[in-house]
Structures are given as C-alpha cells and as structure tokens.
Design a protein around this nucleic acid. Structure first.
Lengths: 198, 198, 198, 198
DNA sequence: ACAACCGGGACAACCCGTTGCT
DNA sequence: AGCAACGGGTTGTCCCGGTTGT
C-alpha cells in the first residue's frame, strides 16, 4: 500500500468517527485536523472537499458494518439463525468505539434528510442494501417452509431495522444500554413468532 | 394577548418548523428571519440567544404533541384502546405540516446527543414523559387484568417508541409512507399480543 | 422644577458616572438604562442622541468641579493659598464617588483626542478654563509681588495640571493613593518655590 | 525570518499604531484590516483574538520605548545626566509617528482601568518597570553622593512620570507642543534641585 | 508529489444606537 | 414614557485554494 493510500485511509478512519459523533455540519475542518494530526493542506491533498471526505467516511462506516454482517452470517443456514445474527450483530457493533457516536445510517439519515441531498442519496443506497439483506433472508426462509408464508418480507425488514434504530437512539440519548437490551429481547421473541412451528 | 406575546408566539411557531427540518446547527438566524418575517433585532428582542429560542421551539413542539396525545386518549378507557390511540396519534401527527421535518424528539436526540447538552437534557425530559405515559397505560392494564402480568411496562414503552421512531426515520429518508404503514400494522398486532387472551 | 427637568437631571447625573468609568465608546445604552432605571425610549425622550447625552454629562461633571473650585477659593486671598487650594481641591474631589472613574478631563481627553471631535472640543474649552484659572492666580500673585515675576503663568498652569492628572492616572492604574500623595506633597513644595521670599 | 513571522510582525507594527490612536475598544477589526492590508482570515491566522493582538501590540510599543531608553542611557554615567536622558527620551519619542496617538501607557491605563483587566495588568507591569528604572537612578545617585539623601526615590519617579504623562495628554488635546515644552523645561530645572549643591 | 502555510471572503451569532407607534 | 422593530455593526469561524517548501 503506497504511503498516499495509507494516509488517505488514516484520514477516512479518523474522520468517520468524528463525523459520526458530531454530525456532518457539526464537524469542522479543525476537528478533522485534530483527529488526523494533519493540517488542512494535508487533508485537502487527498480529498477535493469536505463533502468528498464525508462521502468516503460514510462509505467506510457502512462497508465496515457490512463486513461484520457478512462474517456473522457465515455458516448460519436457517433463516431464524440468520435473523438472530443480524440483530445480535447490530447490537454488538455498537460496542465498537468506531460507532461510539451511534448508528451512521440513523445519524446521517436524520441530519441529511432535508439538507444534504448527496449524503441522503448515499444513506438511501445503504439502507436499501440493509433492507434487502433482511428481506432476502425472510424470502429464503419462506421458500424453505421455515418462516410463515403470510409474512411480508419488506415489512419484517422495516420492523427489525426500525426497532433497532429507534432503540439505538434512545440508549444514546440516555447514555445507558437499557433500551438496547429491551429492544433486543423483544426482537428475539419477535423472530420466533415468524417461524412456522408453533 | 399582548402584541409582544403574540409576536413571540409567532416566532416560536415558525422557528419550531425550521429547527425541526434543518436541525439546530443547520438553522441560521437568516433562516429564522426569513421564516418569521422579522429582522435580527426583532427576534433578539424576544429571545436572548439562538439557544433560548431553540429551547422554546422544542418545548412548543413537545407541548403540541402532548396535547394531541391528551385529546386522543380522551374517552379511551381500556388499555388496549389507549395503546392503539398512542400509535395512531403518533403516526397521524406526522401528517401535520408542523412535523414535516420528522419527529422532534428523534431529530433533536440524534443531533444533540454529543454536541448540545442543554438540548439533550430537554429531550431526555420529554422522552421520559412519553415513556412514562406508555408504561402507565401498561401498568393500568395489568392491574385490570386486561394486559398480561408478565409484561415489563418499561420494555413495552421502549419497543413501542423505538419502533415508531425508527420507522419515522426510514419514511423520512425515502420520502414515502410505506415504512410508517408497515410499522403501524406491526405495532397494532403487537399490541394484541399484549392482551390476556379472552 | 418640572418633572421633565427632574428626570433629565437624574439621567445626566447617573450617566455622568457611567461615562466617566466606562468611557464614551465603552458605555452602551443598556448600561445607561441600568444606571437610570429608565428604558431606552425614556432616555431618548430627553436627549436626541447618545452624543447629546454625553455632552450634557461631561458638562455636568465639569460644572461640578468648577463649583468645588469656586467654593475652595472663597476667602483665600493670597496667591499661595489659592494655588494650594487648587491642588487640595483637585485631590479631594477624587474622593467623591462621582469621580470614581477618574478625572473626566483626563479620561475624555485621552479617549476623544483622535476619535470624537465634538467631545474633544468640549474638553478643550474646559481645560482652557482650568488653565486660565490657575494662570490668573499666578498673574495676580505677581502683580502683588507675592510670586516671582520671572514665572511664566502658563507654564505654571501646565505643570500643576499635568502633574495632578498624571498622578491621578497612576493611582487609578494601581488602585491605591500612593501616587496621589507623592504628587500632592511635591506640588505643595513646588508652590513654595514660586513665592518671592526665600 | 520566516514569512509567517514577518507577517505577524507587520500586523503588530501596524496594529500598535492604530490601537494607540483609536483606543482598544475604538479599534475595530475593519480598522486593523485597513491598516495591515490583510483580510480578517489573514489576521486571525496569526492571532487568536483581538485581545491577543492587542496584548502583542502593547508589548511591542513598550519594548520599543524600553529600547529607546536603553540607548539613551548608554554612556550616561551621572545620575543627573541619566534623569535628563529619561526626560529627553520621553519627549523625543513622541516625535515618532509610532507614538502619534500619544503615550501607550497613558492611553491604555486610562482606557483599561475599569474595563479590561488583562490590559490593565500589562500596563501595571510596564509602569512598574518604568518607575523602577527611574527610582534606581535616584538611589544610585544618592549612593554616589550626587543626589540629596533626603529624596524619596519612589516619589521622584512618580513626579517625573506623572508630569510627563500629564503634559503629553495636554499637548495631544490641543494638538500643539507648548505643554510638552513647558513641562520639559520644568522637569529639567526640577532635576537640578535634586542634586547636592556643589 | 505531497504536506504545509497562509490568505481570502462569506457567513456565523449577537449587539448596537435609533426610531415610530402605542 | 415605553415597547417593538430595524439594520448595520461587532468579533470570530468557516471551508477552501494558491503558493511555497521538502
């Protein structure tokens, strides 16, 4: 890896955490300078603009999450196990200091929905991937007679994701994990209700 | 009502919508001037600072929501009806242009959690009220043998609120109501599962 | 005295102290509101502008000082006694809370010399009066063969006034009266050297 | 000297003159922009705040004055010659365009005594140095039996400085040098009276 | 070629003295 | 006499390039 690529990667990694904590508009170049240890010139040499860096940082965070889901799903064959893995991974991810600022999809969606079309578009794509992933699991489970045929896969995806995101918001707001745990327990029971066998 | 109080009320009302759409940091005094029709001096005659106005605007929005919940609960006696009313009110509220920017609690929680202690505190208080309201309904239902005694009222509150907030975020992100509807349907069924089976 | 004139007088009196402490530019209308207990409108009803009030306040202070000199010179016949009275009055005046901010002539001269032509003009007139008063005493003493004929009355005035003003500045700077006392002692001896008899 | 240091020095030099003429509060960033030829961003790259720059500017002026005194005292051995050099240097300094606005100690003391604690502290330190310098000369002269043993060195310092400062104020007020000359002549004679009569 | 420096200028929030209207 | 609105002024921060140095 060239030195340039290494520096670029370093900037993205540090910036991602800062953006996720302070928000896009709330993060100043000075914040990024402090986090990366580089001067403005050093950063602008790798990114055309703050937007450019924000895009890269968001992509980095989402790739990181996708990676964790991939690993978690590795070897899980039944739809039930896979859905549980999704929930567990989502909540486990928030232990990582990288997501100290909360869920990037949630944060970015809230901040950008009325103000930053570029970011919003990127969040939409990311959210589509996530929803599709969950819906696919459901459809796969239905095909295998594992999950109830009456389920709407898209609705299940919405419910799972919405509940997780909402509980992340609440736990961040209070600074404790109570709401995370409540929602996780609920979702695990919810997943059971999706299965064929009574 | 004095002219001063009238103007102040007008400013709050307009500012509330702008803050909720653009976020606290994303809203400039120029935006507020445009929304209210007043010049800077006129606004600062009624509020000591942007913070001061932001607090007032948030309180206004939350009071408005509380009002809607109060009205919706009027006359609903059974716990089931009351919980349904909460869900329906939450979703109906988002039809109002005032909440065009999404749920104020969600938006403010996400933006302020790592940056604006004053706002965060206010959101916590508001969220406490909301959670308490739901939990009370559950406890009341349990006392009347209407809801399952095994339920944890706080968990029900978390699940209900988290699911609603998460789905609001998703529908705002995509600009459609699909996710709102999915979550609403799910929650109505969820409420049924809380009841003592007759 | 009409109520209007009373209010006007009250404003001037309070404003004079504030202006003298904070300086002309350093005093805001809010400061004047706090000092007078009136609202902006109430003040502007009596004075066309901040300048207008500043002029009146300066004049008030200078008149007040002139009054004290007049009283102090009452009955003092010899030039020596009269010069001593001038020095003693100058230093005694600074005990009054009205001059808590220092000497108005000094303060206003320093602040306005390069910035506020109107005030500067007023200070010049006041300073002329003061210098003339001292010089007259000297000339009178020379005519009576009480003071040395070789003295330049204008120089004596300059020296007396300059030394007093400089020492006021120093004592204000340090917040103690040491320099006031040093200068006073010096000036009393200096006055002795002006007299004919060895 | 690096370009940064050069620019910083340029800013200080220009700002010093402006601050000394218009006063600290009377000087706006716009004035400083005009004087330095830089835009606000350029200035704030070198100084954290207006205060920061004001401190640097005051220090620059005081250092400049100290430098002149050092040079003037070079080679003057007798206390009498040294005191004369102090007086002559003080008055000669005011010919320099840098001190066009008057004496920085006087101006800053008057303006800051009731309003700007930071500046006042700095003036105090500067004034202490100046007073100490004069008092040391007196003590040195007394040890050499050149000056009267009865003198209070601190009083002499106060008298010399006060008279000079007061006369600077008066000459600035009128825009002529008459008062400067009067005071200078007086002080030279005063210094003679301090000497042991041969 | 890449990091740093340094200047720019638009914009931020906020305060000012002032004026009509009530 | 006071309230409420004004609009230009304040300091300070923002993101971003052009140039310089390594």
């Amino acid at each position: 890896m060239s030195k340039a690529a290494l520096t670029r990667s370093h900037i993205i990694q540090q910036a991602a955490g800062v953006f996720n904590r302070l928000g896009y508009a709330g993060t100043s170049m000075a914040d990024l300078m402090a986090a990366t240890g580089l001067k403005k010139g050093g950063i602008y040499n790798h990114f055309a603009s703050k937007d450019d860096l924000a895009f890269a940082a968001f992509d980095y965070l989402f790739d990181w999450m996708q990676q964790r889901y991939s690993e978690a799903l590795q070897g899980r064959l039944s739809a039930r196990d896979r859905l549980i893995a999704v929930v567990e991974t989502a909540y486990a991810s928030h232990e990582d200091p990288l997501l100290q600022g909360g869920c990037p999809l949630l944060n970015t969606a809230i901040e950008s929905d009325d103000t930053h079309a570029g970011l919003r578009q990127r969040v939409r794509v990311a959210m589509d991937r996530w929803r599709t992933m969950v819906a696919k699991i459901v459809r796969y489970g239905q095909k295998n007679d594992e999950l109830l045929a009456s389920l709407d896969p898209d609705e299940v995806a919405t419910v799972l994701i919405a509940t997780m995101e909402g509980s992340v918001m609440m736990s961040k707001l209070y600074g404790d994990r109570t709401h995370l745990i409540h929602a996780r327990n609920h979702l695990l029971r919810y997943i059971d209700t999706l299965c064929e066998t009574a």
